[in-house]
Write a protein that binds this DNA or RNA. Structure first.
Lengths: 203, 203
DNA sequence: CCTTTGCCTTAACCCGGGTTAAGAACGACG
DNA sequence: CGTCGTTCTTAACCCGGGTTAAGGCAAAGG
């Protein structure tokens, strides 16, 4: 199912998180399945059971909430070799409350949580790998907490541009605004301020 | 070192997260050490190596950042049977960037990360337990992200009161304000609004 | 006892971001 | 080609929260 190149890329990614014997790696490959997701399609939707997660092989995904008034709030963008899935809900064994949408056509390597958990009951290496994945997620969320607590909207925008420079051009601004917790109008103003300052320095 | 009662309480807490054989439990008890922290003392300080975490046996801790202008930003309050420590920095193998301060005299059960990691290399049960702890941390941070993205300051305050009703009375309000990402003045106004509304309903 | 210190509140003023609305630029599609 | 969505921008107005400052209150310490 996976091309040799894809398998190599995944192996490198997983191996960077935790040492993996060839045997464990084979087991992981056997547990996952490659799936395509067309642009605009959903990997997770609120109300549906949260039983699967995936590693992105290619493409770009967006995680977001949708509140009662119809406002979208973007939790994350996930690109190649990153983990995607309603992980908090999986852990809590609750239905998903988040949309995960493909912003571009995407290829995923999908795992059933139940299968991974079962295999991890007898594989310390796998258990450790999952732990590392969760740690990576945790660090990302704590960084986000840091930004909400300490930075202004403008600083959060700069941080975003600095941390995902390739993506900034391709993601619609209202989604970036939502990610940093402001409205599209406010982001437009922030960008205008930035442009004004730039041309002041070099008129 | 631990009283029988403390050990039972810890055992119950750990066992609720993941099944633990008596052998694993003995190993865990042997790895940790009970430490007292006087009110106002620190379990973690920025710049110091992040090599230890702890389970709170009794007392109340506060995790916070301190920025260049001297502003404190509270990340978390942690009470009995909760995990404390600069976990993001531990995972990243970086020096701590967070203060962890005892708000009351506290008893901790402290672990050296290196010792836990080493033991977890040969214990699937321990590896799994650590994973569960990280998952709990992750879910908490994601909940916090949800609140920053979707709720107003007033709603965050209500949520805080609802989720930690016993603590609200005992924690200084400027620390609560910092936790929900506003100033003490703003929190005072929010509380005043609440009082006004309450006496309108029953004058 | 009085002073100090920390905590909370109130008020006045300011500013960043929310809201609403209108328009420009662009691509998709009939 | 025109029309319709979508995205982005700009402007006007409003409001929540930031800032600063002053005062009240209670506990701590001389």
């Amino acid at each position: 199912m996976l091309t040799a190149m894809e398998e190599r890329a995944l192996h490198e990614r997983f191996g960077a998180l935790a040492p993996l014997s060839p045997k464990t790696w084979k087991a992981i490959v056997a547990l996952g399945s490659r799936e395509s997701l067309a642009e605009g399609a959903f990997f997770s939707q609120p109300g549906k059971p949260a039983t699967r997660f995936a590693v992105v092989i290619s493409g770009l995904l967006r995680h977001y909430y949708l509140d009662a008034k119809g406002k979208e709030s973007v939790k994350a963008f996930r690109g190649p070799m990153e983990l995607s899935g309603p992980y908090a809900e999986i852990v809590q064994r609750r239905p998903s409350r988040t949309f995960i949408e493909a912003l571009t056509d995407a290829e995923l390597f999908v795992f059933e949580v139940a299968a991974i958990d079962e295999a991890a009951e007898t594989s310390l290496e796998l258990q450790r790998l999952v732990r590392r994945f969760v740690e990576v997620q945790f660090v990302a969320k704590e960084q986000r907490e840091y930004e909400f607590l300490l930075l202004s909207a403008e600083e959060r925008y700069r941080q975003f541009c600095a941390s995902l420079p390739e993506l900034v051009q391709h993601i619609p601004q209202h989604q970036i605004a939502s990610y940093i917790g402001i409205t599209p109008v406010a982001l437009s103003r922030i960008r205008a301020r930035g442009r004004k300052r730039a041309e002041k320095r070099r008129p």
